[in-house]
Computed example of a mutant assay.
Amino acid sequence: MSEQPTTSRRVAVVTGGSRGIGRESAERLASDGFAVVVNYAGNQTEAEAAVSAIVAAGGQAIAFRADVADEAAVSALFDVAEKTYGGVDVVVHAAGVMTLAPLVDTDLDALDRMHRTNIRGTFVVDQQAARRLRDGGAIINFSSSVLSLAIPGYSAYAASKGAVEAMTLILAREMRGRDITVNAVAPGPTATALFLDGKDEETVARMAAQPPLERLGTPRDIAEVVSFLAGPARWVNGQVLRANGGIV
């Protein structure tokens, strides 16, 4: 899909934008007036469905496949955004993978895969964003509330998200003088395929009961936070927002 470059609206790149929180964030930003580049790793059908939904609602969007840990592919992703829409203002880095097991049983190949996508992927995407975002923009990474909850079985995943938080806080300070905010969203238990996969009903019900609001989060709940950080939240910078319904 090709469109003529335009500077009439702000532009967002959303990684992991074909499903779950990424897709909901892409659709929300489109409804906020952004032109959106939906990045996906492999599921072209889902990515095109996300684009179709945005366009049907009157927005602008294209899909582009890129492995977030591949610097050449991510550079090409930004090239397409700039060629199609004239620049990039907001990057929402929602792509991530999760494998759960006690530390003692964790498969090291799974550990390496999580670190490649969640740590290297964040570093690569943020590096391109830092180089190419227009002044006044925003970088929004994704961490997880499991860092503060210390749930058994999440050691490898939480370790990867700890690295995301460290990068986020430091990059915010490195962007001094650019009027670019850098924050991370740390969802709690959220009803996505990534969270629900492999969990029985009892486990899901127990985790849903943890917040004072007594339910799982939804992708829409998290997309509201993304919208806030991408738009009006210009004085929120270098922060991790734990969007988890009040779990302590």
Results as ranks from 00 to 15, higher is better:
L77P: 03
G33L: 06
A61V: 10
V92K: 02
F34L: 10
A53H: 12
T84Y: 06
A69W: 06
Q60P: 00
E48G: 01
A47P: 08
V80S: 13
L77H: 05
A72S: 07
V92G: 02
E48K: 13
H93A: 14
D89S: 05
K83E: 14
A81D: 09
A56Q: 15
F34M: 10
Q60D: 14
V68M: 08
T45H: 13
A50Y: 05
A30E: 05
G86V: 10
A47W: 09
V92S: 02
D67N: 13
V38C: 08
E48V: 09
A57F: 09
E48A: 12
L77C: 07
A95F: 01
A95G: 06
F78C: 02
G58F: 13
A41K: 01
A61K: 08
G87D: 06
V55Q: 13
G86S: 11
V90C: 04
D70G: 04
G87A: 12
D32R: 14
V88W: 03
V55S: 11
T45F: 05
Q60R: 13
G87W: 01
S31T: 14
E82K: 07
S31R: 15
F34P: 05
T45P: 00
A47T: 09
S52D: 15
G33C: 07
F64I: 07
V37A: 11
I54Y: 12
Q44E: 15
V91P: 03
A35E: 06
D70I: 00
S75A: 15
Q44F: 00
A41D: 02
F34V: 09
G58I: 12
A63D: 11
A35C: 10
V92L: 10
E82M: 08
A94S: 15
D67H: 10
D32Q: 13
E71L: 00
G42K: 10
V90L: 04
A73I: 00
D67R: 05
V80E: 14
E46W: 01
V74T: 03
K83C: 04
Y85Q: 05
A56K: 15
H93P: 01
V36F: 07
D89F: 04
A61G: 11
D70F: 01
A49I: 00
Y40M: 04
A95R: 01
A47M: 10
V36M: 08
A50P: 06
E71H: 01
Y40V: 03
E46Q: 14
R65F: 00
T84M: 10
T84L: 05
V68A: 08
V51M: 08
N43M: 03
S52Q: 15
A63E: 08
V90P: 03
V80C: 12
S31M: 12
A95E: 03
A73W: 00
T84N: 12
A30W: 07
G33T: 05
A57Q: 13
V37E: 05
V37M: 10
S75L: 08
V88R: 04
D67A: 11
G86Q: 09
V92N: 02
L77F: 06
A53G: 12
G86T: 10
G58H: 13
D67V: 02
T84I: 04
A81V: 09
D32T: 02
F64R: 14
E48Y: 09
G86C: 11
F64A: 14
I54D: 12
S52P: 00
A35D: 11
A76E: 09
A66K: 02
A56L: 12
V68N: 04
L29W: 07
A53R: 15
E46Y: 03
G42P: 08
V38L: 09
